[in-house]
Simulated scan of single mutants.
Amino acid sequence: MSHDPAAAAALAPLFGALGDPTRLAIVARLGGGADLSITALARGTDMTRQAVTKHLRVLEDAAIIGRRKAGREVRYSLRPDRLTEAQRFLDAVGAEWDAALVRLADHVEGG
Results as ranks from 00 to 15, higher is better:
Thr48Tyr: 07
Glu109Cys: 03
Ala17Asp: 08
Gln87Arg: 13
Arg75Thr: 14
Ala34Ser: 14
Arg43Ile: 08
Asp91Cys: 00
Arg72Lys: 08
Ala10Pro: 07
Gly16Leu: 12
Arg88Trp: 09
Gly44Arg: 07
Phe15Met: 10
Pro21Ile: 00
Ala42Cys: 01
Ala99Leu: 00
Leu90Arg: 06
Ala63Pro: 00
Ala34Cys: 10
Val93Arg: 13
Ala95Gly: 04
Ala62Cys: 09
Gly33Leu: 09
Glu73Ala: 08
Thr39Asn: 13
Ala63Phe: 05
Asp81Thr: 02
Val58Thr: 14
Leu11Asp: 09
Thr45Tyr: 05
Pro13Leu: 02
Leu11Gln: 11
Pro13Gly: 03
Ser77Gly: 14
Leu36Thr: 09
Ala92Leu: 00
Gly31Pro: 04
Glu96Gly: 11
Arg75Gln: 14
Ala99Met: 06
Asp4Gln: 02
Leu83Phe: 02
Met1Gly: 03
His55Val: 02
Gly31Trp: 00
Pro80Asp: 13
Leu104Ala: 15
Arg79Lys: 15
Trp97Ser: 02
Thr22Arg: 12
Ala25Cys: 08
Asp61Ser: 01
Lys54Glu: 15
Ala12Ile: 02
Gly31Arg: 01
Ala105Asp: 15
Gly19Phe: 05
Val108Glu: 12
Asp35Trp: 12
Leu59Lys: 14
Asp81Gly: 14
Pro21Asp: 01
Ala70Gly: 11
Glu85Asn: 06
Leu18Phe: 01
Thr39His: 06
Ala105Phe: 05
Ala99Glu: 06
Val27Glu: 00
Leu24Met: 11
Val52Ser: 03
Ile65Leu: 10
Ala42Trp: 01
Gly16Tyr: 11
Ala92Tyr: 02
Glu73Leu: 09
Ala70Ser: 14
Gly44Trp: 10
Arg67His: 14
Ala99Cys: 07
Asp81Trp: 12
Lys54His: 15
